[in-house]
Design a protein around this nucleic acid. Structure first.
Length: 597
RNA sequence: GGCUCUGUAGUUCAAUGGAUAGAACAAAAGUUUCCUAAACUUUAGAUCCGGGUUCGAUUCCCGGCGGAGCUACCA
């Protein structure tokens, strides 16, 4: 039982004794006392005045008196309006603190054999272009969420669905065939995903030129699109792919391999990984089967043109196409296939899709369709829906060249970190490799923290030129605090100063120290909240608060120069636990923290 | 039109229905003989509008207004 739960129990008793009413925990509103008031926990008494039949202040007074008399834990109280502030025996806090210190994995729960299995899908790229800013948010959220779930004792399988087939892929292939002159990543020195992306852009450019030409000849836009030979060739290539034409398949495999090598490099730099990867080319056929089975069972229906549909009007939605008139599959078909394959392979308890909120409707429909098909888990799937990343000038548009490339962005962040470190003279005495590693951690830390501190469901604005700072509420601020503590701990070790947590210091603590202890002991609640809310931002905001609080403490108190060894030892413990929690919290965000910077 | 999300300082973000709405950046002014100044301190600055529920509303409900997205035989 946690400290606050123990207090709650005693409040329940107090209410029962004083007012002869049995209340449950849910009716009690106990919260940590705000900084500007004296006390540890605050009981909001307004909800209880009906039971007491007295004014709020009077009720609070009575409860406060009873609690001080009957509880060893509560030493004093004060009443402000309807708020009863309770002060605890300071030794209780030292005990809590000691417990945290003794647990190397404080705040997280071990994953047991019988734990629930969560599968988390994220990233989900297309193989026709490199990853961009939108993918960055997706990847960071998916990866962090996986770690948060693990910290809450869940088994997690991280997965990715790669959209590796379709007309868009054929466009890149066709452009390469026409204008590539045999260029390869090796021959050009380009990253494979960028190289393929360049041909996707090249297709678009030539296609536009062709349309302009046709329109200049007097055709309407629609006529021009219908008459385009380029598009016809691309479609023809897709048919070739579907028919397993060896030449098309061979080119497809070659170019996809280039892309995967590029993606792997990006994922590695970003620090994210997957346990298993699915490819649309392997799941669309099983998806078709499921749809056709559904058709036989009368769950779906066929229109005169041959297309297959689901009627969701009873669910308040529209009709949804599942197979085109020519029998080919759509996005939904493939997602049905992927889901059923996954559930056949793994004993999944919860399927979590990390996908942008633009697809809310898609997942609403997917859930219903899976349920109709008889998959009991369908209605339980979780769409972790996050907001778009917008630029100051609005949405990213590849046609207008405003897409922020993931590789460029990371490189830019690391470069800035490198330069800043150099300017601040932080690199003295470090090898080049050490300096570079720090620049990498700091640059990526700044980027990741910037994105993860925002509530996932909100759209966010990203200004490539101004957004990312290294001061204030940022990743580097937290990393810096950690490095600073490590420096103190190194020096303490040199002087043979030991960390300790004697209860005798309890009465001697400053307000800052007391507050820091309270903040530190909140960490398990934060991890739990992040897990139930599916929200890395909860962790991000907490580690920032903690770092800020520690820096104030650090500024106001001497650690190594403190003569009283109990106090010095305690401050060392405080530093130690802060560093450990900062590191742990940042780990949950997928952010590394350096020991010096 | 319908559905979903969203609206907080100049800007980017916080706030289980609770006390005087917190930070950061930008602006102004300070702190280095002392454990890392990527730090610390101070000043100025905000809940889109109108109703309702409540002892209490940034939060919940209704109605406006603004922003984003979906409503594809693209993924």
């Amino acid at each position: 039982m946690t400290l606050s739960q123990q207090i709650e129990q005693q409040i329940l008793q107090a209410v029962q004794q004083l007012y002869a009413h049995v209340v449950t925990e849910g009716q009690i509103s106990l919260q940590p006392t705000k900084k500007e008031f004296v006390g540890d926990y605050t009981l909001v008494v307004f909800p209880l005045v009906k039971l007491s039949g007295k004014r709020p202040e009077e009720t609070a007074e009575e409860l406060g008196q009873w609690l001080v008399e009957h509880s060893e834990r509560i030493t004093s109280y004060n009443v402000i309006k309807g708020f009863l502030n309770l002060s605890l025996n300071p030794r209780l806090w030292i005990q809590q603190f000691q417990k945290a210190l003794d647990n190397a994995h404080y705040g997280t729960n071990p994953v047991k054999d019988d734990a629930e299995l969560y599968m988390v899908e994220y990233s989900s790229p297309n193989t026709n272009k490199p990853l961009h800013l939108g993918h960055v948010r997706n990847n960071l959220l998916g990866f962090s969420l996986s770690r948060i779930l693990e910290a809450n004792g869940k088994k997690v399988i991280k997965t990715n669905i790669v959209n590796d087939r379709g007309i868009h892929i054929c466009k890149s292939m066709l452009a390469w065939k026409k204008w590539g002159k045999g260029e390869t990543p090796a021959s050009s020195g380009k990253k494979g995903d960028h190289l393929v992306g360049d041909y996707y852009v090249a297709f678009d450019k030539h296609y536009k030129a062709e349309l302009a030409q046709l329109q200049a000849e007097g055709k309407s836009k629609e006529e021009a699109e219908a008459a385009s030979t380029l598009m016809a060739e691309a479609r023809n290539m897709l048919l070739g792919w579907e028919a397993a034409d060896p030449e098309v398949r061979s080119l497809w495999e070659t170019m996809n391999q280039w892309v995967y090598q590029g993606f792997d490099a990006t994922y590695q730099q970003m620090g994210v990984a997957f346990d298993t990867i699915y490819y649309e080319s392997q799941t669309y056929l099983p998806g078709k089967e499921k749809v056709l089975e559904g058709l036989e069972q009368g769950i779906f229906f066929r229109k005169e043109d041959g297309s297959v549909w689901a009627d969701l009007t009873e669910d308040g939605l529209d009709q949804k196409v599942l197979l085109r008139a020519d029998g080919t599959s759509v996005y939904m078909t493939q997602d049905i296939g992927t889901a059923s394959l996954r559930f056949e392979t793994y004993p999944i308890d919860r399927m979590v899709y990390v996908v942008g909120n633009e697809q809310n409707y898609h997942f609403q429909v997917l859930s219903i369709l899976l349920d109709k098909l008889g998959f009991s888990w369908g209605k339980d799937l979780v769409h972790f829906s996050y907001g778009m990343v917008e630029l100051p000038e609005g949405k990213m548009k590849s046609r207008e060249g405003t897409v922020v490339d993931a590789d460029d962005l990371m490189e830019e962040m690391i470069r800035t970190a490198r330069e800043t470190s150099k300017e601040l003279g932080k690199l003295d005495g470090l090898t080049d490799a050490e300096a570079e590693n720090i620049a990498r951690m700091v640059g990526l830390g700044a980027l990741k923290y910037f994105i993860l501190k925002v509530d996932p469901k909100k759209n966010m604005t990203f200004n490539p030129k101004e957004s990312i700072d290294f001061n204030g509420n940022t990743g580097p601020f937290i990393q810096y605090t950690h490095a600073r503590i490590q420096s103190v701990l190194r020096k303490a070790a040199e002087s043979n100063f030991a960390a300790s947590a004697s209860e005798d210091v309890a009465e001697k603590l400053s307000e800052k120290e007391q507050y820091l202890i309270r903040l530190l002991t909140k960490y398990p609640n934060i991890v739990a909240e992040a897990g139930t809310e599916f929200s890395p931002s909860v962790v991000a905001n907490y580690v920032y608060d903690l770092a800020k609080e520690y820096n104030q403490f650090y500024h106001d108190h001497s650690i190594l120069k403190e003569n009283n060894s109990d106090i010095r030892g305690f401050r060392l413990s405080l530093s130690l636990l802060t560093a450990r929690i900062l590191k742990s919290g940042m780990y949950l965000l997928g952010i590394e923290v350096p020991d010096r910077m």
